[in-house]
């Protein structure tokens, strides 16, 4: 077995093992590993800061959604209120119109009735006058009394 036979190289192997292991250890300890550590730390910080930022942004977005919804609801309420008002107004207006019209018609009917009554009266008076007239002229004709002297 060369491992145990080549004793003359033991010192050489140990020497070079020492040399290379020490080189490896020193460079890793004072150069490479701090670099890796610093980089990992930097990235962790970056990720963590972004995670907290993300939380903030999510909160903001939620708030925005809430605001939007409340505003939307307000607008809907307002819209329905306006619609209701408009309906009520329209109803009132039409009722008023109907009432006015009815009143007008009523007054028209009353006026017409009054005129008819007057005309009736007038007609009766006229008829009376005419009857009187014809009566006097009839009497005058049969009695020969002057028309003007006859009084009924």
């Amino acid at each position: 077995m060369p491992q145990l036979e080549q004793i003359e190289f033991f010192i050489s192997q140990l020497f070079w093992l020492g040399v290379f292991f020490v080189i490896l250890f020193v460079v890793l300890t004072y150069f490479t590993l701090p670099k890796i550590r610093a980089f990992l730390k930097k990235r962790d910080e970056f990720v963590n800061s972004h995670l907290s930022k993300q939380d903030e942004l999510i909160k903001k977005a939620e708030q925005l959604i809430e605001n939007y919804e409340s505003k939307l609801n307000e607008a809907k309420d307002k819209a329905s209120q306006i619609i209701n008002e408009a309906k009520e107004n329209a109803l009132k207006e039409s009722e008023k119109l109907i009432k006015e019209t009815e009143e007008k018609i009523q007054s028209e009917i009353k006026k017409t009735e009054a005129r008819v009554d007057q005309e009736k009266k007038q007609a009766l008076v006229d008829l009376e006058g005419q009857l009187k007239d014809s009566a006097t002229s009839f009497l005058g004709k049969i009695t020969n009394i002057n028309k003007e002297d006859i009084k009924i």
């Binding site: 050489s12 192997q13 070079w16 093992l17 290379f20």
Partner: peptide
């Protein structure tokens, strides 16, 4: 006075390092 020859073993240690 010690033999510290650079051997094939040392070569592969170099490569590894």
């Amino acid at each position: 006075g010690q033999n510290i020859s650079f051997t094939n073993s040392s070569l592969w240690m170099t490569i590894t390092t």
